[in-house]
Simulated scan of single mutants.
Amino acid sequence: MKLSAMLPLALLAAACSEGGTEGNGAMTAERTGAPAPAPAVSAPAAEEPLDPPDPGEAGGLPNDRTPGSEAPFTPESAQGAANVLQNYYALIEQGDYEQAWALRSPSADGPSPEEFAASFDEYAEYHAQIGAPSDIEGAAGSLYVEVPVQTYGRMKDGKPFSSAGTVTLRRSNNIPGSTPEQRRWRIYTSG
């Protein structure tokens, strides 16, 4: 090998070994004027992905294999009620508790808007899956629809949670004297 080709290799080797292996980044920075590389920081362990139970499993939605209607639905239909519930949980997921609370039936024994919002303080993530609504049932001038719901997410301490239940939505039947607001589906009970 020619001497002129070996000279750059010798200079590179000398630069790498100068001052030992510790602090080479700082020494290189001093010579080149470039900032020293930041020390390596280990990334926090990734949280395990959320994996809610599948339909038919304990804690999951019912395994109802009846095909849903793909026909357009009206706000007064059972699917209209399920749509209200889907909006409700989407608002909760976004942290818009005031708008979500407004989709609940007025109740003297229910939580105030502030209490409702505070009930989500312990969650880092909150999601829901909505099942197929029941047929509409009627009683005493009111209409009811039951919708299975699976909620899941992560607590602020990092632990995942999942639960399933049924939410009942209620609206006033189209009786004389009822207001448009009374004829809208609202969350009546959840369990």
Rank of each mutant, 00 (worst) to 15 (best):
K2E: 04
A5L: 10
M6P: 06
M6C: 15
M6N: 12
L7P: 11
P8L: 13
A10K: 02
A13Y: 07
C16G: 12
C16T: 15
C16V: 14
G19K: 10
G20N: 07
T21W: 11
E22W: 12
E22S: 14
G23R: 14
N24P: 07
N24M: 07
A26E: 12
E30P: 05
E30Q: 05
T32N: 08
G33H: 07
A34E: 11
A34C: 04
A34Y: 01
A36F: 06
A36P: 08
P37A: 14
A40G: 13
P44K: 09
A46C: 09
E47W: 07
E47C: 07
E48S: 15
P49C: 05
D51T: 14
P52I: 02
P52G: 05
D54E: 13
P55M: 05
P55F: 08
G56W: 03
E57L: 13
E57V: 09
A58C: 02
G59H: 00
N63I: 03
R65S: 15
R65L: 13
S69L: 10
P72K: 15
E76Y: 07
E76V: 01
Q79W: 10
Q79D: 04
Q79M: 10
Q79N: 09
A82Q: 00
L85V: 01
N87L: 15
A90N: 13
A90V: 12
L91C: 11
Q94A: 14
D96W: 12
A102L: 14
R104Q: 13
S107I: 08
S107V: 12
S107D: 09
A108V: 12
A108E: 10
D109F: 15
S112C: 15
F116K: 11
A117Q: 03
A118C: 05
F120V: 04
D121A: 12
E122D: 11
E122H: 04
Y123K: 05
A124C: 05
Y126Q: 10
Q129Y: 05
G131W: 06
P133R: 08
I136K: 04
I136W: 01
A139C: 02
A139D: 12
A139T: 09
A140R: 11
L143P: 04
V145L: 03
V145K: 02
V145Q: 00
E146A: 08
V147I: 02
P148V: 01
Q150N: 03
Y152M: 07
Y152E: 02
Y152I: 03
M155K: 11
M155R: 09
K156W: 06
D157H: 11
K159P: 06
P160I: 00
P160K: 00
F161R: 01
S163H: 03
G165Y: 09
V167D: 03
T168K: 03
T168F: 01
T168D: 01
R171P: 01
S172E: 08
I175W: 14
I175L: 15
P176S: 02
P176H: 05
P180K: 05
R184S: 13
W185G: 02
R186E: 01
Y188K: 00
T189C: 04
T189K: 08
T189L: 03
